[in-house]
Design a protein around this nucleic acid. Sequence first.
DNA 1: CCGTTCTGTGGTATCGCTACCAACCTATAG
DNA 2: CTATAGGTTGGTAGCGATACCACAGAACGG
Lengths: 348, 348
Amino acid sequence: MAGKANGRKARNGRNGGGGTTMNDIARHAGVSPMTVSRALSDPSSVSEKMRRKVDAAVRQFGYLPNRIAGSLSSKRSNVVGLVVPSIRNSLYAAMIHAISDVARANGLHLMIANSGHRLEDEEALVSALLAQRVCGLVLHNTAHSKRLRELLARTDIPVIETGNLPAKPIDMVVSYSNFDAARAMTGHLGRLGYRRIGFVTLPLRDNDRSRERRRGYFAALKELGLPADPGLVLEAPGGFAEGADALVRLVQTHPDIDACFFAGDVLAVGALFECQRRGWAVPGRVAIASFDDLDLLRHTVPTVTTLRIPRQDIGRRSAELLVNRLRGASPQKVRIDVGFEIVQREST
Amino acid sequence: MAGKANGRKARNGRNGGGGTTMNDIARHAGVSPMTVSRALSDPSSVSEKMRRKVDAAVRQFGYLPNRIAGSLSSKRSNVVGLVVPSIRNSLYAAMIHAISDVARANGLHLMIANSGHRLEDEEALVSALLAQRVCGLVLHNTAHSKRLRELLARTDIPVIETGNLPAKPIDMVVSYSNFDAARAMTGHLGRLGYRRIGFVTLPLRDNDRSRERRRGYFAALKELGLPADPGLVLEAPGGFAEGADALVRLVQTHPDIDACFFAGDVLAVGALFECQRRGWAVPGRVAIASFDDLDLLRHTVPTVTTLRIPRQDIGRRSAELLVNRLRGASPQKVRIDVGFEIVQREST
DNA sequence: CCGTTCTGTGGTATCGCTACCAACCTATAG
DNA sequence: CTATAGGTTGGTAGCGATACCACAGAACGG
């Protein structure tokens, strides 16, 4: 004996499967390990009789196949890697949720990492995910470090970028255009008759999405024939208080401001609450527009005009593209623009 | 040649590491594979000279070690499994974020799954995670299916339950008491002088947390010497509209209601907005209290009295417990009550 | 100067599963 | 009754790493 119980410690021995291996199941079912493998991964490829024997043994031992061994052997994994700038943000949460659903329906698992908006961290996390041999990647970011681009260029797993429509995608992209969206909303405000439109942006550093939005704002002003006043643009970290603060500063330095477009929904809501507090009529004193259709914006008083970005669609379609590619679809570059929609509400 | 390129298809061939294996690195560095393994996993165990040779070869090839093979061989994985009722909910997001940070600082990855509040799904997901040989589990739920309890009993990986303080924990628990929290808030409202306190609960089915909260509400009423009127209790799915609707119904059926305690923050905010819309003074007409300290509640007008649950602490401490156990801490049952705090604000 | 400890390195044997090929058995046709 | 095809089953050889043991040379004491 000792034949099996060799020297190595069985540290993780009874990992749920009771430490049982496929060989044990095979022995007890009186079939070969290969038959067990087949019975579990493709039941239709074995005879009814074999299947029953295997199933019985599996149930008896509560056997759970070791996917680590399976992945190593088959050189295929069933884990998708996902890197988002922040897990805490509900925008990403909606996307993650959709990806998770599609993934699960296709037998895939999700390994989620958050980069905290730091490109170096994104690079390190993707490396780690590749070391885990994920079968696909979704990155909510399109402005990568040089080394990450090189790393991804050498990979042959499918990669999906989202969050923006980049000029030079790595592989597949599913997103909307931050530029177009911000331009459209600014234009919308102009057409509603607002003339002094402020703009509050999220941090611009290492964030092409923020920069694109600001570019869109300026482009729209130009199209509207309105002067671009840099004093009407403020950069603020995301947060209710920061949004409130930004609006107050804009109103105080530019009393003629008649509308303000916030490039982040939390900023907008913070500003709205501040208006309630100060008794500033919205949109009477100042109109407020937001970015991203948080559920919340539909319920505040007044309700807030915003851009609806189909976050869930982005997640779903990203996952579907991944699944298709894993199923053998040819690796052609795909670029899906899911678009956006202006939702006109009471605040403008 | 062909020596390496044997019959098997290299489907996942160049997974980021260029398909390079440790053997390749060893050959090119002129050392044994074992030295490469050691140089990478514990550089101090290898001489300066060897380390440099290995590092050079690793950089030259952009080699990424295959953790799947590593895990299989070492019977150790560096992936933690996490099951939450809903990824979309920001409460869980705060906890996930904290877990993610601690995990990352300790070289661990996160596999996240959402059960959608369904116990059968939780069971299936945990099975799948165990099959992936996760090195630890965090479950945001304490009311498991019988089969899941059996499954987990046979496992020897650390398991953390959270979301409630169960009577019979599986392994380790990090949570607060939903009963105590709801009781404390209801008592608080009573001590503020409110006499007709409504209660709006989230769905009770398959959710021990909701049930505990309701139990706490009734316990507090008893202690306050107030009658328990079942008509003052409403069950509502989470959502702004649902909260608004619940409050309106309570006010219409019980005009003497003077306070309402919502067991979910979104419900409370929805109700608050409805009050703004209808011009009902808060707390003049009806006081509003909430559960869970969403950032939002600190900024609404009026600000909302609520229970602060240290979600981030829960995540951090859960992860720390896991890490300690993985580092060899003895498997003793741990039960951490992180407590809660009543945050009295303008709405009551 | 030799034996002993210590440190660093290499070889071998798996980890638990799946791909591939070969062998078998039952059908069906000639 | 034999030949060919089709559908199942089993054996073997890895997947790419690590654990363990053995061993070579350096460092040390008597």
